[in-house]
Amino acid sequence: MEKLDCIVIGAGPAGLSAALTLGRARRKIAIFDNGKNRNRVTRESNGFLTRDGIKPQVFKEIAMKELESYPSVSISNETVIQVKKEEQKDLFLIKTSNNHFYFAERILLATGIQEEFSFSQIKQYYGKSLFSCPYCDGWEQRDKPLAIIAEAEKHMIHLTKLVYNWSKDLIVFTNGHQLSNNVRNDFARKEIKIYTTRIKNLHGDNGNIKSIELESGDNILRSGGFVVPSFYRPNQFAEQLNCQINENKRIITDGGRSTTNGVYIAGETETVGPSSLMMAAADGNKAAFSINMDITLDRF
């Protein structure tokens, strides 16, 4: 079985950026990706210099096309289901859902994160008219009548204050959670309405929200908005490889290196929090520098 220099799990901006750097360093690598990247539901990605407004799938296709210039890089549309360290061979072994096995000296985890919503119907509108990142989508929602859907008071305060830069026509929905008087007074001064009644239904079509119906019977017109999801890693690879993870679920790293020798982390996988395309790509580039330097020092 052929031994690879590095296996990259995940072909989002972090994994693809790392693959490009490693390919240019003449390292033999394989990228594994199952197409379940978080931004696949997004109509366009914003804020990446020279690629502002690009569709995420087009961004991915351009990156993969560029990688074809480097013969030491291969891409496989397989789902990795197991990763483990073969201590006797000092290699990592991965197994895919197609029952294929691959060996590599090093592993880069760039599988990203996924969202969960307290109100499941949000998924129908997420990435189209409901968003989580004002820096990514605030410009397109400027001056529109927007909803802020958040349950934890600290998250709601942060998001509302931030979105206020793009639109002053805001209404906050807490889905049954109460807010302190101080928050109510602060928002009242900015003429921001608050509804603490539970949400009954979201109305709209083709992913475009039109109104929010409450259990009280109120139906409030809105044409877009921002929400606060919770995030999770879609796999347990970091745990399986004994990477140290802190109390906030962040994988401890230094220059992309995890605490497990030979295991590297890039992008949203590290923080279990959302990141922009540009920041994730930068993380992949940084991790690739560490991988290449470690290989260089081991072999020189």
Rank of each mutant, 00 (worst) to 15 (best):
G127E: 02
T296K: 08
V83N: 01
G255C: 12
N248A: 12
K161Q: 11
I245A: 10
S290K: 08
T260Q: 11
S120N: 00
A63M: 13
H100S: 12
A188Q: 13
I192S: 04
C6N: 02
I251F: 08
N46Q: 12
I220V: 15
F117I: 05
K123F: 00
E105M: 10
G273N: 14
C133T: 03
E2W: 00
I192H: 00
A152W: 00
A288R: 06
E268Q: 14
Q88K: 08
N292R: 01
V41Y: 00
T174A: 05
A238V: 07
D5E: 14
P274E: 06
K84M: 07
E86W: 01
S132D: 08
I295G: 09
Q114N: 13
N46E: 06
S258D: 04
I149D: 03
E44Q: 07
V58D: 04
A30M: 13
G267F: 07
I7K: 01
N206P: 05
K154T: 14
E115I: 00
K60L: 06
K193L: 13
Q57W: 05
N37W: 11
H203C: 13
K123P: 00
G10L: 08
V80G: 01
S97K: 05
H177I: 07
D205R: 09
P229K: 01
K89H: 00
K286I: 11
F289P: 02
K123R: 10
G53M: 02
Q121F: 03
I107M: 08
A287K: 08
G255H: 13
D5S: 12
K200Q: 15
M278E: 09
K95N: 09
E270V: 14
I265C: 09
K55V: 06
N292Y: 02
V73Y: 03
I245P: 09
A188H: 10
G53C: 08
R38Y: 07
R299E: 14
L159D: 05
S74N: 05
R233A: 09
S275H: 02
K200D: 13
V172G: 01
T160V: 12
A152D: 15
F101N: 01
I291G: 00
N285L: 01
E44M: 02
G127K: 00
A30C: 15
L179W: 05
V263R: 02
I9V: 04
R43G: 11
E105K: 15
K190L: 15
S258W: 04
K128L: 10
T271I: 10
T21W: 11
R257H: 15
Y195E: 09
P145M: 07
L4D: 02
S132Q: 11
D283W: 05
N34A: 14
N34D: 15
I291N: 02
M293C: 00
G23M: 08
S129F: 03
T197A: 11
R222C: 13
F226Q: 03
A25W: 03
A152R: 08
T197R: 04
I209E: 01
Y70R: 03
I29P: 00
K286T: 12
E105V: 06
G47N: 10
N285V: 07
T269K: 02
L93I: 12
L108V: 09
